[in-house]
Simulated assay, not measured.
Amino acid sequence: MSDVTREGSWPPLFAAFAIALAASLSVLFVGEVMGQVPCNLCWFQRAFMFPLAVVLGLAALRSETHIAVYGIALAVGGWLVAGFHTLLYAGIIPDRIQPCTATGPSCSSADMTILGMPLPALSLGAFSAIIILLLLSRRRSAP
């Protein structure tokens, strides 16, 4: 049975793509239009999210749910960085471990928010949603 004929596996895959695309376009808007310079950890999160949008977009276009394995790997990598960044922003990780304090923008400054929400937490939420949706897509496409 092909991936295209498996009912219920495409919508979660497409939703994961939509989240990855929205997150990618959002950070480009924040950086390029609003002029907010990303910190080091934000760059690492972008390094996971940008290819995720491309891979999931192609997978959704072709209804290839088996690609979810690669998407999960990228999303977990981004989730780990976003989780660390969220802990850093929340002040749970001590100041001496912060990777962004020497040069460039701070990883935990007050300007790391958009519409009152911390960017690291938004990123963590996006990666979490993508992982859940891709796991659902895999489960629904299992023979």
Rank of each mutant, 00 (worst) to 15 (best):
A16I: 08
G8D: 07
E7W: 03
R138D: 03
S106H: 10
E64Q: 15
R139D: 07
V69N: 02
D111R: 06
G77P: 01
R62H: 14
G125W: 02
V4P: 00
S123W: 07
N40R: 11
I132Q: 08
S108Y: 04
A59N: 07
S108R: 13
V54A: 06
A22C: 11
V37R: 14
A53R: 06
G57F: 06
V69I: 08
F127N: 02
W10H: 15
L58T: 06
G125M: 05
F84Q: 02
C42G: 02
P12V: 04
A110C: 04
L80G: 06
Q98V: 06
Y89Q: 06
T113G: 00
R96H: 13
A53E: 04
T103G: 00
Q98K: 15
P38K: 05
V33I: 15
R140Q: 03
R139K: 11
M112F: 00
L80A: 14
T86V: 09
A75G: 02
I131Y: 00
L88M: 15
A68H: 07
S123F: 03
I19Y: 09
T86K: 12
A90Y: 10
L80K: 03
I114T: 06
L80N: 02
A129Y: 05
T103L: 11
E7T: 08
D111F: 08
G78V: 01
I92D: 06
L58P: 00
V76C: 00
L136I: 14
P12K: 03
V69Q: 05
H66R: 15
L88A: 08
S26W: 11
H85E: 14
L13G: 04
F17M: 10
S137R: 01
F44K: 07
F14P: 00
R96P: 01
L135A: 15
A15F: 10
A60H: 02
F48T: 03
L135C: 15
I114Y: 08
M49G: 01
C107K: 04
I67H: 07
I67E: 04
M34D: 03
L58A: 09
R139N: 11
A142W: 14
S123V: 00
A15M: 10
F17S: 02
P94Y: 07
F48S: 12
L88G: 03
P11K: 05
G77A: 00
A129E: 08
S9C: 15
P11A: 05
I97K: 08
P12A: 06
L87C: 07
A126L: 06
R46W: 13
M1P: 11
G116Q: 00
G83V: 05
E32I: 12
T5P: 00
G31Y: 09
F50G: 01
G104C: 05
